[in-house]
């Protein structure tokens, strides 16, 4: 279980990305974070595994404060939390298999791993992960030879290699075609339902939010402005959506945002 208490992040340039944000994530949830670009979604996700140092507040992961963890403890926590990214963040020149295997780095011995030596059960596990996302035949290719959708599936396979209890997904479909979005979110849904892995995912499109989320939180200007269940979000009106996204977003993006909402 993850509990965020009074999380605040102020960047060096003075930007307040998160202001006193508190919420809870139960095990097995598919929590979706909505909000404009710059509302603090990415910062929030990255504070959870400390890719970004929080300025203040507590991040309780199964009772341990991530914000205070150091060195070995932090790495231990990180390996329990997988992460996938908008731009996939694969090592482009390495093979797909190496990218997937790098998900095991938190487990294997550092010295043998820097020589790219992994135990054979890890290799077996990597092929299983690739099979789960349906790209076993691409294992030997260089990561940048794959299409965007395939690269994101490699990202998912890499996260699965960590045997995580939770996966953070930072706009996982924002740089993919809408058609591929369902495929990628479908994998996340399977992972969530079949393996009981908590998913915390930021998304833009309301129809995707309505279809996949079990619960939704909304951020605006670093403040938590909305919290609701899947049932709530299905009932959400255009006006409530405007509240979260702000007037200008609606004007520019009205079509896509209100696409699935009841008028």
């Amino acid at each position: 279980m993850l509990e965020i208490r009074n999380l605040t992040k102020i960047y060096d340039d003075g930007t307040e990305a998160l202001k006193n944000v508190s919420f809870k994530v139960e095990d097995g949830e598919f929590l979706v974070i909505i909000g404009l670009s710059g509302s603090g979604k990415s910062t929030l996700l990255r504070c959870i595994n400390r890719l970004i140092e929080p300025t203040d507040g507590e991040i309780l992961w199964n009772g341990k404060d991530v914000a205070k963890a150091d060195g070995r403890d932090l790495r231990e926590i990180r390996r329990q939390i997988g992460m996938i990214f908008q731009h996939f963040n694969l090592v482009k020149r390495s093979s797909v298999l190496t990218n997937v295997l790098s998900g095991r780095l938190g487990y294997v011995s550092p010295w043998s791993s820097i020589l790219h030596h992994f135990p054979s059960e890890d290799r077996k596990r990597a092929y299983e992960a690739l099979e789960m996302v349906g790209i076993t035949d691409q294992a030997e290719k260089r990561a940048d030879e794959l299409s965007g959708g395939q690269q994101q599936r490699v990202g998912i396979a890499r996260a699965l290699m960590q045997e995580p209890s939770m996966i953070l997904a930072d706009e996982p479909v924002a740089s993919l075609d809408p058609v591929l979005a369902h495929s990628i979110l479908g994998y996340l849904e399977d992972i969530n339902k079949q393996r009981n892995i908590t998913i915390m995912c930021s998304l833009h499109y309301l129809d995707l939010v309505q279809q996949y989320s079990s619960r939704v939180i909304g951020l605006r200007g670093g403040n938590l402005v909305y919290e609701g269940s899947n049932a709530d979000i299905r009932k959400m009106t255009d006006n409530q959506f405007k509240e979260i996204y702000g007037e200008e977003a609606v004007r520019v993006n009205a079509g896509s945002i209100s696409g699935g909402a009841d008028e």
Partner: peptide, 13 residues
């Protein structure tokens, strides 16, 4: 920097 944060996120040292 993307791959760096991705590898860090796996718990790598």
């Amino acid at each position: 920097p993307g791959p760096i944060e991705a590898i860090q996120a796996t718990g790598a040292n």
